[in-house]
């Protein structure tokens, strides 16, 4: 029993560290992903872990790398601007949807931008 509080402390400390890293890292991540657009492979693994981890969620409905094989729209191949406009439209309610408004409201504008840059850069690389 004696060790249990120590374990909890360790886990909590880690959570604090990551929450802090998550929010303070945002502006840096944006710059990094724009700068490294020429080398998307390096960017994926190195430069924008935040953009990548946000974007991985999208694949559960839109397919791996945003390539859909169903009625759900493909994101892969769309421009950064297109995706960002769509996501912000869902968030504001200007763009009608079934479920996308409910998702888009869960992200800050910065996060929506990171997601758009992630898929926008992927599609540039694939051309």
């Amino acid at each position: 029993m004696a060790v249990k509080p120590e374990i909890r402390l360790t886990a909590s400390a880690l959570i604090f560290a990551v929450i802090a890293a998550g929010s303070s890292a945002l502006p840096g991540d944006c710059r990094a992903s724009s700068n490294s657009a020429k080398n998307a492979t390096a960017r994926q693994s190195e430069s924008s872990p935040r953009g990548q981890i946000l974007a991985l969620s999208c694949a559960s409905c839109h397919g791996t790398d945003g390539k859909s094989s169903s009625v759900i729209p493909t994101i892969n191949g769309r421009s950064v601007e297109y995706i960002e406009t769509a996501l912000k439209g869902y968030k504001s309610g200007d763009r009608p949807s079934t479920v996308m408004a409910r998702h888009a409201k869960g992200y800050t504008d910065e996060e929506l931008r990171l997601i758009s840059e992630y898929f926008g850069t992927l599609s540039t690389t694939n051309k």
């Binding site: 694949a59 791996t64 859909s68 094989s69 169903s70 009625v71």
Partner: peptide, 17 residues
Amino acid sequence: RQEAMFAQGWYQNISQD
């Protein structure tokens, strides 16, 4: 009706993912 369609679309894509 759209949600029923997307339910199937979701399954196809997550299975593939």
